Simulated assay, not measured.
Amino acid sequence: MRISEVAARSGVPATTLRYYEDLGLLRPRRASNGYRVFDTDVLERLRFINAAKQLNLPLEQITSLVRAWDSDPCASVKAQLRPLLDTQLERLDTMIEELSQARHVLTAAAQHLDDLPDRPERCSPECAFLATAAPPPPPVACSLSPAQPARLTAWHEALTGAPTRRVAGGMRIELPVEALAPITALAVAEQRCCPFFTFDLSLRGPRFTLVITTPPEGMPMLDRLFPGDDPAHADLVERQP
């Protein structure tokens, strides 16, 4: 196929196809007249590239994946793709946290602006909505203490064996969807007494992801939720009566 036909059938502009060629994503042949000639499998390759772009992967990573997709078994492509997805998820978790904080500030500013009286005088610094300070964060103190071993034990039982990893400001845990109800109940209970914790749940087919974030001073208490062989975690659990 000529480049114009590939562009028409794939919906990818010819300028983009030439750019992909420069990056090594596409490898057309040259006909005797010098025109680019693409094999029919270029359409499948473009579908793979577009799918990778939908995951917000940079083109350098897509190029590496395409090379693996060309010659390696599917398991190799999967092994390369999974850590890239984990990195993207961590980046999005950080963005969600930052956007949530920004929304909180904007909501407070909008509320403060609505509460200001309509005065004929010029605005004073005291009433400027841009100078509105965000409300102070809730104090870092909650029931995750020796006085509440039952709920700590319930968290340990619910999270034992679940894949966990650190994210910005907290932890990310993957759990089977069957654990959604008890985990949600525990999160609601903790939110009532520990408002500095943030719980975000994302359903993913037969599994779901729980992201728990906290200010830095709350990390020691968050660590108590995670049982395991780590000596620091074991020490925290042993101190429970």
Rank of each mutant, 00 (worst) to 15 (best):
Thr153Trp: 07
Pro120His: 11
Pro83Ser: 02
Arg224Pro: 01
Ser10His: 08
Ala109Glu: 10
Asp93His: 07
Phe38His: 10
Arg9Thr: 12
Ser4Ala: 14
Asn56Val: 03
Glu5Met: 12
Trp69Ser: 03
Glu217Thr: 03
Thr160Gln: 13
Ala234Asn: 03
Glu5Gly: 02
Glu126Ala: 13
Gln101Asp: 13
Pro146Glu: 12
Ala52Tyr: 00
Leu92Thr: 00
Phe199Trp: 08
Cys74Ile: 11
Pro137Phe: 02
Leu116Phe: 00
Val211Asp: 04
His233Lys: 13
Ala134Glu: 08
Val12Trp: 06
Ala31Val: 02
Arg18Cys: 07
Asn50Ile: 11
Thr184Pro: 05
Pro206Val: 10
Val105Arg: 14
Arg172Gln: 14
Ala31Pro: 01
Glu157Phe: 03
Ala52Asn: 02
Arg30Glu: 03
Leu46Pro: 07
Ala8Tyr: 06
Met171Gln: 13
Pro163Ser: 04
Leu159Gln: 00
Tyr19His: 15
Cys123Leu: 10
Pro220Cys: 09
Pro182Arg: 07
Gln148Ala: 12
Asp86Val: 03
Leu89Gln: 10
Ala108Arg: 13
Glu238His: 14
Ala134Gly: 02
Arg192Lys: 15
Arg192His: 13
Glu121Leu: 12
Ala8Cys: 05
Ala31Ser: 15
Asp86Gln: 10
Arg165Ala: 11
Ala128Asn: 14
Asp230Phe: 10
Gly228Cys: 11
Thr16Ala: 12
